[in-house]
Amino acid sequence: MADLNVNILGHDFKNPVIMSSGVFGYGREYEEFFPLEALGGMATKGTTLHKRNGSEGKRITETPSGLLFSVGLQNPGIDYYIENELPNLLTKNTNILTNVAASDKEEYLQIIDKLEQTDAPIIELNISCPNLSGEPYGVSCSSTEMITRAVRERTKKPLTVKLSPNVGNIGEIAKAAEAGGADAVSLINAISGMKIDINTRRPFLRNNHGGFSGAAIFPIALRMVWEAANAVDIPVLGIGGISSSEDALQMIMAGASCVEVGCAIFKDPYAPIKIINEIDQWCDDHGVKDINELIGAVEPW
C-alpha cells in the first residue's frame, strides 16, 4: 500500500483520482455503482446562475477512440444546487469541486457570492466550456487573468481554473490564471470538434460542433499538462482522455498533482476505482512509497 494522499487546494485528497465535471452529474447516479468516498474527489456538473435546459436534439456521437459531446450545460442552477445537491455531497467523505460556468463576469460573480455563503470546499472555475455561445474567457491570457482575479477577489475558497485546450499557448494561459490568483489549474477541457453525417449532409450534433473527448485526446492533453506544469508553480489537475492507470501515471509524471477521469466511465462504470487500485499496485510493484514522488517525475530528453 503506497501513500496515495496528495494535498492540494488546501485539502487532503486520499488518492489523486477525481471524477471530472460533466460526466458525473452531482454524483447520485454513479453512487449506485460505488461509494463516492472511494474517490479522491469529484467535480460537479458545470452549474450556472439560472437553470439551463441545454442543447436541442442529439447531444452525443462516437468517433474513433473518442466521442463528441454537446450538452450545452444543462443544469438546475446554483440555487437548486446549494439547496438540494451540495448538502448531500458534503456528506460523502470526498472532496467536492463545485464547477461553475457562466457566460459573463457578472454571472460568475453572482454565483461565487452565493457559494461563498456555503460550505462548498473548492471552486473549479470553468472558463472553457466549448458549448456555450460566445468566446470563452479561457482563450486569451488577458481575459483568463481578468476573470480569475475578479473571482479571486470575491472568494476565500480554494480556486482551480479549468482551462481551454483551444489555444496555442497553454503555458502562458496557465501563467495568466496563476497571476490572477488561482490556487491550481485544471486542464484540459474538451477540444472543439465536429462530425458530419454524409447521407443527410448534416452535422451529427444539433449544436453542429461539440466537445471532443475520450482516449483519442489523451496525447494532446498530456502535452498541454506538461507545458502548463512547467510554466506555473501552482498545482495542475490533469484531465483529458484518461482511461487507465497508465494514462493517469503519465499525467502525474508530466506534472499533474491529481487527475480527473471523464468519459472513460461511460465504457466502464468502475474505471476510476480500477485506476486507483492499479496506481496503488503499480507503486508497490515499482518501490514507490509516496505518490508525491511521481509528480513531475518525467525525465524529458
Binding site: 460526466v23 452529474g25 447531444r59 452525443i60 459531446f69 461511460f266
Partner: peptide
C-alpha cells in the same frame, strides 16, 4: 429512443 452516454442519468445527453 435517443443516443446515450452513461445510460443512468448522469451525463444528460439523451434528451
Amino acid at each position: 429512443e435517443q443516443h446515450m452516454g452513461c445510460g443512468i442519468g448522469a451525463c444528460l445527453v439523451c434528451t
